[in-house]
């Protein structure tokens, strides 16, 4: 295969683009700027850690089933772990959002990072909502019958039927986690490619200009 043909291939373009924008030194850095030494910069990775616990405990729940997590002690524990890791996931994500909002984290060509973060937040709300609908208890029954009126009133009840347990459980354990996973992966890769946003009053050491 000649070099000219190789240049035209999408694999070649992707490889070159990746190497240019996200070399391995950026993807797996061992140092960070001095301003990152603050507690406020920890909430993004805390959110990721909570997401890891959510996925792990959710996998156990899906393998063992509702009769296990409703009636056994270990099932109660894993069910509670899934619930509380979601609570902390949202708490960490909201504090992360507040921190990034007040430091205007979309600066420095980071708009797509901000947008993917917003999409992850909205997608997480949808995922958590479907989780509440598939608890298989009176709580989920109450929530679904209250929510159906809202969805019907905006005309999407026939496609997104919150009282359809089969649809909600598949959305919760298959479709939405994949969406959240992909958005989160893109978000993290963008953070690595663009670097952590500096404080608003930080100076660019090389250029002597504000970032």
């Amino acid at each position: 295969m000649s070099a000219d043909i190789e240049k035209e291939m999408w694999t070649s373009k992707l490889r070159k683009g990746w190497q240019k924008n996200l070399p391995i030194e950026k993807l797996l850095p061992d140092t960070q700027p001095a301003y990152v030494a603050s507690w406020i910069y920890l909430f993004g990775v805390a959110t990721l850690a909570a997401l890891g616990v959510i996925v792990a405990s959710g996998l156990v729940l899906s393998f063992e089933g509702a009769s296990w997590y409703h009636y056994s002690s270990v099932g109660h524990f894993v069910n509670s772990m899934h619930f509380w890791s979601v609570q902390f996931f949202f708490i960490f994500m909201v504090v992360h959002l507040w921190g990034k909002f007040w430091m205007a984290a979309w600066r420095g060509r980071r708009l797509l990072t901000w947008i993917t973060g917003a999409l992850a937040f909205v997608g997480s709300i949808a995922t958590a909502f479907t989780g509440y609908l598939i608890q298989t208890n009176f709580d989920s029954q109450w929530i679904s019958y209250e929510a159906k009126d809202g969805f019907n009133s905006v005309g999407i009840g026939s496609r997104f039927n919150v009282t359809n347990f089969g649809q909600m459980i598949l959305l919760h354990v298959a479709f939405l986690p994949v969406i959240i996973g992909v958005i989160t992966l893109i978000h993290v890769l963008l953070v690595r490619a663009k670097g952590v946003v500096p404080p608003i009053d930080a100076f660019n050491n090389e250029l002597g200009e504000r970032k």
């Binding site: 030494a37 603050s38 507690w39 406020i40 909430f43 708490i91 504090v95 507040w98």
Partner: peptide, 15 residues
């Protein structure tokens, strides 16, 4: 309120 306290502490506590 817990999130607001957490946010405030993250800003002021030394790392």
């Amino acid at each position: 309120l817990f999130m607001l306290v957490l946010f405030g502490l993250a800003l002021v506590l030394p790392f």
